[in-house]
């Protein structure tokens, strides 16, 4: 039972981060029908820019409260990621909107590797220690279950952001324009919606969420690295597909489910396979889930909202 609660908690922490990233995939897919392969790299950029800011600020003004450092890191990382996300769309994808469908996909892969390489040039190949700005001192609410303030913080922040995004999409003018554009660019354009503006806004919002996810991710694993975005990016994509790509609540549910499955899978895989496989196979789960979902229920758990483009 204790293990069960512990694994649930761990799963929720990583799952809520996946969910944040998955939202970015799903929003872009909902509007453009494009898998923005480079989205995972924004997680990495968010984490590394925040780390850089914190390091510089700490050196300039020693003794600042960790919360201020964290806020400063976020305050820089989010706009930077938003700018990068905007540029990717503006320079890379916009021109390819009507190109044969392999073209934007290949471009996206190129952008992903370009961002990784640039990060490698700026921050080097080494793993950087990400400071513990929120306490990680374990608390023990009950026997055998350990939880840290950071974990609680992560879950709370992620859920708050998701709630905010839902409000934005469902209640605001921009949200309505986004939904209209997702239905049909041209018609939305005829209705006086600036489709390019809406698409850019989608990239910007998704990138901002990715930046925050990056900070949360790096805080939880206490590490930042130029290639750290790739795996969570893929997993978040899996989460988006799992929930039904193009579907915002789906991305959130998908992220949480994936986090839980991974956490339980890693905890129990050795028993399940009689010791043949161990927890080093954890990363396989996401891919297996992805494959299984696409084969058996391609519309995802909550159904795909994207119309047939034939």
């Amino acid at each position: 039972m204790e293990t069960f609660l512990q694994q649930t908690l761990n799963g929720l922490v990583s799952g809520s981060i996946y969910a944040l990233v998955a939202l970015g995939y799903t929003m872009v897919y909902g509007i453009l029908g494009l898998i923005n392969f480079a989205h995972g790299e924004l997680v990495m950029i968010g984490a590394l820019v925040a780390l850089q800011t914190v390091t510089l600020l700490n050196a300039a003004v020693p003794g600042l409260h960790p919360v201020i450092l964290l806020l400063a890191g976020v305050a820089v990382a989010v706009p930077v990621c938003m700018a990068v996300g905007y540029l990717i769309e503006r320079i890379g994808y916009r021109r390819l909107r009507n190109a044969p469908r392999l073209a934007p996909l290949i471009t996206a892969i190129g952008v992903s590797f370009l961002l990784q390489t640039l990060a490698m040039i700026i921050w080097g190949r080494e793993f950087h220690v990400f400071p513990q700005l929120v306490s990680t001192t374990p608390m023990q609410p009950m026997d055998g279950v350990v939880v840290s303030p950071l974990q609680i913080f992560t879950i709370v922040v992620a859920f708050a952001l998701m709630g905010g995004l839902m409000l934005l999409v469902n209640k605001s003018r921009l949200g309505r324009a986004m939904r209209a554009t997702a239905e049909n660019h041209r018609v939305a354009g005829l209705m006086g919606i600036n489709a390019n503006g809406v698409i850019a806004a989608t990239f910007i919002i998704g990138s901002g969420l990715a930046a925050l996810a990056g900070v949360l991710f790096a805080s939880n694993y206490a590490i930042a690295h130029y290639a750290m975005g790739f795996t969570p990016g893929l997993k978040a994509f899996t989460a988006a597909v799992l929930g039904g790509i193009g579907n915002l609540p789906g991305a959130m549910v998908g992220g949480l489910v994936l986090g839980l499955v991974e956490s339980f899978g890693a905890g129990y895989i050795e028993h399940l396979t009689f010791g043949f496989l161990n927890s080093s196979y954890q990363d396989i789960f996401a891919f297996m889930i992805l494959g299984a979902v696409l084969i058996f229920r391609p519309s995802g758990l909550l159904g795909e909202r994207v119309a047939d483009r034939a």
Partner: peptide, 24 residues
């Protein structure tokens, strides 16, 4: 400044992007 491995990755990724945009 840039070791050959980094340069190679840089050129590869740029090649993919530029080719798709300019000369598919």
């Amino acid at each position: 400044l840039l070791d050959p491995e980094v340069l190679r990755m840089l050129l590869l990724s740029l090649a993919m992007i530029v080719m798709m945009l300019v000369r598919p």
